[in-house]
Design a protein around this nucleic acid. Sequence first.
DNA 1: AACCGCGCCTGTTCGC
DNA 2: TGCGAACAGGCGCGGT
Length: 269
Amino acid sequence: MPELPEVETVRRAMAARLVGRTIAAIRTTDLKLRVPLPATQLQDLRGGRFVGARRRAKFLLLDIHDRRAVLLHLGMSGNLLFRPAGQRHDHVVFELDAGPPLVFVDPRRFGMVVVLEPGEEETCAALSRLGIEPLDPVFDAAYLRDRCRDRSRPIKNVLMDGRAVAGIGNIYASEALFRAGIRPDTAAGRLGRARLERLVCAIKQVLNDAICAGGTTVSTYEGTGCGGHFQQQLAVYGRAGDCCLVCDRPIASRVLAGRSTYYCPHCQR
DNA sequence: AACCGCGCCTGTTCGC
DNA sequence: TGCGAACAGGCGCGGT
């Protein structure tokens, strides 16, 4: 599922291949995604030229020359692909002035595509609720400690709460906690400065490693173009019952905040 | 106010 | 073998 590293991978692909292209035509389906597709607003983008590709948490912003922007969320099965359109689950098709069209594909329809008019980004509710970026230098142990202070909820829930730090999903929360040697169900408020320092380090490291690998490819998400290969570096996610790569004992799993969580009961305390 | 649990979706996997 | 149930999950919302 697309989390921060996967969205960043798509962003880079858009920066390389989409920026500079002009929209020749747009086609949309009638199917409702997370919100209904704004068919008319999308049609009105015809003639617009893409001038930038940005990421905020798991949101993508494709900037148009006239200060409008296309705001996308890949949900859990969304993708942006340069290829001929017409397949099942193709929801939005951007015909371009050169090359194959850009297609927004999303089988499970948890994704979102909206058009932001000039200035609308600043007032956009979905974006304004977001916490800070985990790869931003302002995300440090002091910040995380502030978000954990007096909290009894599990640390994994804090990491997954986009209002604190945005873009970490289920895969990378599990992986970062493993790298930091912290049990996912540890009450956030019980973590001291040293452990939070380690956790912040582990989060940045695992996200950067995954971005370098082009993201994680799983059954529901093949990545953009050739797809990422971070799944080869997963230490705990999806490995319940398998041997821990460090201590050889079995990886455990349990549900936290309604999400499967994987950890090594021996390496994580 | 904080936080948990639910529902939205569909493709895949599992058990009977 | 074939079918339905369970599961996957980001996120907003409603209830506690």
